[in-house]
Design a protein around this nucleic acid. Sequence first.
RNA 1: CGGGACGUGGCGCAGUCCGGUAGCGCACCUGAAUGGGGUUCAGGGGGUCGCCGGUUCGAAUCCGGCCGUCCCGACCA
Length: 486
Amino acid sequence: MANEKGLTPRGEDFAAWYNEVVLRAELADYSPVRGCMVIRPYGYGIWENMQRALDGLFKETGHENAYFPLLIPQSFIEREKEHIAGFAPEVAVVTHAGGKELEEPLVIRPTSETIIYHMFAKWVQSYRDLPILMNQWANVMRWELRTRLFLRTSEFLWQEGHTAHASEAEAQEETQLILGLYRRFMEDWMAMPPLTGLKTEAERFAGAVRTYACEALMQDNRALQAGTSHNLGQNFSRQFDFRFQTEDGGEDYAWNTSGGVSTRLVGGLVMTHGDDVGLVLPPRLAPVHVVVVPILRGDASEAVLAKARAVQDALAARGVRAHLDDRDTGTPGAKFWEWERKGVPLRVEIGPKDVEKGQLVVVRRYVADGQEKKSFLEESAAVDAVPGVLDAIQAAMLEDALARREANSHRGVEDYGRFREIIEGDGGFVYAGWCGSADCETKAKDDTKATIRCLPSEEFRSADAPQSCLVCGGAATAEAVWARAY
RNA sequence: CGGGACGUGGCGCAGUCCGGUAGCGCACCUGAAUGGGGUUCAGGGGGUCGCCGGUUCGAAUCCGGCCGUCCCGACCA
């Protein structure tokens, strides 16, 4: 399976390939505790860039950051019926502290709705105190039965946005706004264009009235739920006595929303753009934009190093994250492979010949159609061109990922046999009619392991609305998108 | 919790059937020569073979028990 150079070729065994990429790019490692992942500096650098971007987007929409505690009284989690039913099997519980058994066990948050709305209730008296738009960056724990680096770890890092509003309409608007924010982030930063839509009851967040999600298609044609935005209605505010006085002097329970994206996105990035060599990063999220590799040879070494430093400085002055790999071990080739494995978008090679000719060798990690991987450019022109090239790479990666998603989206599938053929064959998104019954959803899941990823948002819906249910043939009430998912 | 496989230096493995006191590749350390796509040579460090017990003169190897990991399912961002 593994090719001569060590990595498992994509396609032959996608899961093994994925793990190899994550480990060899030094994104993460296994921890001694099952299912808990150690994020290494390089992987964390990617996450940090994601955080920065998302944090900016949230602040643009008026959110403020805050922090709520890791431990939640067990009784809080149990208050909302669907919520406890959904999360009970996977919460870790602290029973002992301070050397003795606790009177009431504490759960390690699997998500923070309960503690947050408990606090909101204390802070809000009047409609004038609303809306509250809050976000927290935190870790949560869900004791999953099976785990995968980044994609499903027992503990993960995320942002969770929580809002409270005076009206149902405003909460709904917020839910859609956040969905759009996630979508924009995935497209503009990750170059991972998702499908958006409404979750079915079976897939909805435990405790929500409506859940919307971003569903991205990975290179093995399985879907990844990459972000969710929930309209919680008054489900939590009623349980946590979160009331406020209305404009007309009455009283009402607050209308809440929540949403989140996690370190899972790093896994999505790997599975969206990685290739047989390793990781491929979109420039906007790459911890290092350009790695400068000097090729040292005898007498010329000093001049080469001086040039390499000058180039690094010039790039930094243009806002480029440039790294000089001046380690004196190994050969240039070994460094080339290492940085390619790590997905660095551009490599600049500087050797004696380049110093002599006043040129730079610029090598792209991601090669779009019709481009040369390697180019030889006059030094100052090359440096000036880098920011533009990075932007172009970012754009090309999105364009290609979008084309791939569409090429693997099957619209207007009416025949159940055909549906099975696609799902059990190459996979991808299948757009089809659905009658709205959970039985049909379950039957197809049992038959094929595919689930309804979402009922697509308007702009994703097919021009010709499907008339009949894919599974039972009855009248369709909605268009549904099916896929096998992570 | 059901079905399958596996636990041997940091990583990947051989050795187990047929008991004789542990080996290979990569990585690591030292030195030298190299350096434009995974350099070469020489030297070196590191493992009580998952744990406990049994059989035996002798156990990585045979027997019993336990623990753990991975894959498939159920659960899931």
